[in-house]
Design a protein around this nucleic acid. Structure first.
Length: 329
DNA sequence: AGCCTTTGACCAGCG
DNA sequence: TCGCTGGTCAAAGGC
């Protein structure tokens, strides 16, 4: 399982024809079947779905304003301050890929923002960033490495995301095609919140509403540790240390009635979120900002931003939504 | 009072 | 068939 563990950590493209595939779809379609995960080394499980199955529109995700290029984003100050930047038009709202919203129908998304080539060629294709000799690293090492590099990436990730999205590389499409959205985040103490779900994207929503899921996060560290200030409320229903993962994986469900959207993420001991996976889509509007998190909304928004920034490989839609949300804030 | 997190146990799939 | 693993349940406690 070592290799599987690695794949798990980084969500490498799953080997074709994995049983997990069907399992995932089943789970997606049938919602929570309760228990029975199964896919050991489930790294790939969330990315196994064939692109053909997903009604993803390929081009509309990224709308780079005329005159701008991915490269320009890289050089933009925005990129450098995303994680901590104050909410402003320059820090997150510069992208409004709202065109994506209506086109994405999959139940969940898989977006990974990886800061290293640990993900193999896919990652390479998405991000030109290529740290040397990571392939020999263990998952833990890789993550650590990612964190180390995150500082650099934070500045670039957003633009990178755009870049890959706009490019609509086949690989990206594949990743995006998965039913779940997984964010592989390498942050250096900053947060990574995620946002996904086209609903969110479609709905201008109330980004300020932090999910309960962040409860523990808030406790555990700074608000920046929060993982789900995506406007929805989440309830943690489990946590488990997954083999091959250096950090425990937390499981959250959307608290909205009849909403079976789930998400899981892994967070390092220092509060760094290393991976976030969304499963399903919200079929309801975002709840009103909760009192509990309203105050921190501003901060969390920034966090979200960072997530989205960091995320970016597989979840074009998600990220798009994230950006739109941010812009809405 | 209500909701959430924590945590151990259980379930089901896969090799 | 068995063991391993991931995912979920549910009781207990906290906020």
């Amino acid at each position: 399982m070592e290799t599987a563990a690695d794949t798990n950590d980084f969500r490498l493209p799953a080997p074709p024809a994995s049983a997990c595939d069907s399992a995932d779809q089943r789970r997606e379609n049938g919602a929570d079947s309760g228990g029975g995960g199964g896919c050991v080394g489930g790294g790939a499980r969330y990315k196994l779905m064939s692109p053909a199955k997903l009604p993803i529109s390929r081009s509309p995700y990224i709308t780079i304003p005329p005159g701008l290029s991915p490269t320009s984003f890289l050089e933009s100050p925005v990129m450098l301050s995303n994680m901590k930047a104050e909410p402003s038009p320059t820090t997150g709202s510069f992208i409004k890929p709202q065109t994506v919203h209506g086109s994405f129908l999959s139940n969940s998304y898989s977006a990974t923002a990886v800061s290293s080539d640990a993900f193999g060629e896919r990652a390479s294709s998405f991000f030109e960033f290529r740290p040397p000799s990571i392939s020999n690293m263990t998952s833990a090492d890789m993550k650590n490495k990612m964190r180390e590099q995150s500082v650099q990436l934070q500045g670039n990730s957003q633009s990178q995301f755009q870049s890959f999205s706009s490019l609509s590389s086949p690989k990206a499409e594949m990743a995006a095609s998965s039913n779940e959205l997984s964010l592989h985040i390498a942050t250096s103490g900053a947060t990574a919140t995620t946002e996904a779900d086209d609903d969110e994207q479609n709905q201008t929503g109330n980004p300020s509403c932090g999910p309960q899921a962040s409860h523990s996060d808030l406790k555990g560290g700074t608000a920046s540790s929060t993982t789900s200030e995506d406007g929805y409320n989440w309830r943690k229903y489990g946590q488990k240390l997954v083999k091959g993962s250096e950090f425990p994986r937390s499981y959250y469900k959307c608290t909205h009635p009849n909403c079976e959207v789930k998400k899981l993420f892994e967070r390092s001991h220092d509060g760094q979120i290393t991976e976030i996976i969304y499963k399903g889509t919200h079929d309801h509007p975002k709840p009103q900002p909760s009192r509990r998190y309203a105050a921190g909304a501003l901060l969390t928004v920034q966090e979200d931003r960072s997530d989205k920034i960091l995320s970016g490989r597989d979840g074009k839609e998600k990220l798009s939504g994230a950006y739109s949300q941010l812009s809405n804030t």
